[in-house]
């Protein structure tokens, strides 16, 4: 086992080590401290994997959204050069022994997940559509205060109309999402989507794509946009593979 620790700073003992990512490639070979986005980083290693860390020092107290965006920038800079598993914002371990123990304990999980995303990146796709008209389609007309059913019946009838409209819209949007999947999935290794997580957000999808196919994927999204000009297609990324990590690593702390 090749275990090597680059000590990131004298004040590490005060605030612990802030962990950014689990890596297995270029950064393992870093012989010294390195700088990314003005942050001095190091790599704590165990066998052929490592954790990219920063001495937290007095920065153990974090501020949103500033520190979250800084965290994102550092992850983005790291992933441009290396395959990595991004670690959740705000993870601070007390010392390098704790970091190494964690790498050792979960070594096989980290290796399996790194293999899954090796040389691949995540791309996001949001399809936006302003749907006030569709949401209101099928609403019963509100009659005057004179004739008509009593208020309780009217309320239940309106709710039934609303429910039917939502279900109709979900079916329609799901069909559209599946059509999009048929165009994009052949260019991706994996893909997943949700529909209508927000009234204007028709489709929110993520794809795991080979680095070499990113431009081709974007080109297909542009073609989708050209085919459906009434909707807005936003392709984001490349991101680290936030959405393509096994469930056990997303939920299980030490």
């Amino acid at each position: 086992m090749n275990e090597r620790v680059e000590r990131p700073g004298r004040d590490a003992a005060v605030g612990g080590y802030y962990v950014y990512a689990i890596v297995s490639g270029k950064h393992i070979a870093e012989a010294r401290l390195f700088t990314v986005e003005d942050a001095t980083l190091a790599c704590v290693t165990f066998s052929d994997i490592g954790a990219v860390i920063r001495a937290a020092g007095c920065d153990a107290r974090l501020t949103l959204p500033y520190d979250a965006l800084r965290h994102a920038r550092i992850i983005q800079a790291l992933m441009r050069e290396d395959t990595l598993l991004p670690v959740r914002f705000g993870t601070i371990l007390p010392n390098e022994q704790a970091v190494r123990a964690l790498l050792a304990e979960r070594y096989l999980s980290f290796k399996r997940n790194l293999a899954r995303v090796m040389n691949r990146v995540e791309l996001g796709l949001c399809v936006l559509c302003h749907r006030e008209r569709e949401w209101s389609d099928g609403q019963p007309e509100t009659s005057g205060a004179t004739a008509g059913p009593p208020p309780g019946t009217r309320y239940l009838r309106e709710r039934a109309f609303e429910y039917a409209a939502v279900e109709r819209l979900k079916r329609q949007v799901t069909a559209q999402a599946e059509a999009i999947q048929r165009r994009l999935l052949p260019l991706a290794v994996e893909g997943q989507y949700n529909v209508l997580t927000d009234p204007d957000l028709m489709v929110n999808a993520q794809y795991l794509v080979e680095r070499s196919l990113v431009e081709l994927f974007r080109s297909e999204v542009r073609q989708l946009q050209a085919d459906q000009p009434e909707q807005h297609f936003f392709c984001s990324g490349p991101w680290a593979p936030y959405n393509f990590i096994d469930h056990e690593l997303l939920t299980r702390g030490l």
Partner: peptide
């Protein structure tokens, strides 16, 4: 969309290790 996507990923996704921290908003 991009800002929301960044925050959604950074705050809600990624490998969970351990530990607590104090945040300020």
């Amino acid at each position: 969309v991009t800002l929301l996507e960044i925050l959604d990923r950074v705050l809600d996704k990624g490998v969970v290790l351990s530990g607590d921290l104090t945040l300020s908003v």
